[in-house]
Simulated scan of single mutants.
Amino acid sequence: MADNNGGPWGGGGSGGDKGNKNGGGNGRKPDTPQIPEIDELMRKGQEQLRVLMGGKGRGGGGASGDGGAGLPRGTFLFAGLAAVVLWLFASFYTVKPEEQSVELFLGEFNQIGTNGLNFAPWPLVTYEKFNVTTNRTESLGINGSRDSGLGLMLTTDENIVDIDFQVVWNIKNARDFLFSLKEPELSVRAISEAAMREVIAQSELAPILNRDRAAIEANVRQLIQKTLDQRKTGISVLRVNFNKVDPPSRQVIVTAVDGSQKRVSVIDAFRDVQAAEQERDQRERQADAYANQRLAQARGAGAEILEAAEGYRAKVVNAALGEASRFSAVLKEYKVAPEVTRRRLYIETLEKVLANVDKIIMDNGEGGSGVVPYLPLNELRKNSQGGSN
Rank of each mutant, 00 (worst) to 15 (best):
G234C: 02
A218G: 05
V237A: 05
E37W: 04
L77N: 12
G300W: 12
A206W: 09
G370H: 04
K226Q: 14
D281I: 13
G367N: 10
L205N: 06
M153T: 04
A269H: 10
E198T: 08
V264S: 05
G68A: 15
D246A: 04
Q278H: 12
L88S: 08
A298R: 14
G70V: 15
V245R: 02
Q225Y: 05
V125T: 10
P184M: 02
V353F: 05
K21V: 15
R213E: 08
K315V: 12
G11N: 10
D3L: 06
R28D: 08
E99V: 00
F105H: 14
A275L: 03
G7C: 04
I235R: 01
D281W: 08
L331H: 11
S91R: 02
A69F: 12
F105S: 13
A174W: 02
P338Y: 14
L380M: 09
V237F: 01
V340R: 14
G7A: 05
G10N: 04
E183K: 10
I224S: 00
V273L: 12
T94P: 03
L354F: 02
N20F: 12
Q230G: 05
A296E: 13
P8I: 09
S384L: 06
K29F: 10
A63W: 14
N219Q: 13
T227S: 08
D246S: 07
G25W: 09
T255E: 04
G144V: 01
S187L: 08
E99I: 00
D3H: 06
A194E: 10
N115I: 09
E279W: 02
L205F: 02
A320D: 07
V330L: 15
A206I: 09
T94N: 13
L209W: 04
Y93N: 00
S145E: 02
L88K: 06
G60S: 11
Y312A: 11
S249L: 09
D212Q: 14
I235K: 00
Y346D: 10
Q230I: 07
P248M: 05
Q251K: 12
D176K: 12
V102N: 00
D229Q: 03
L375N: 10
W169Q: 02
V161G: 01
R381D: 09
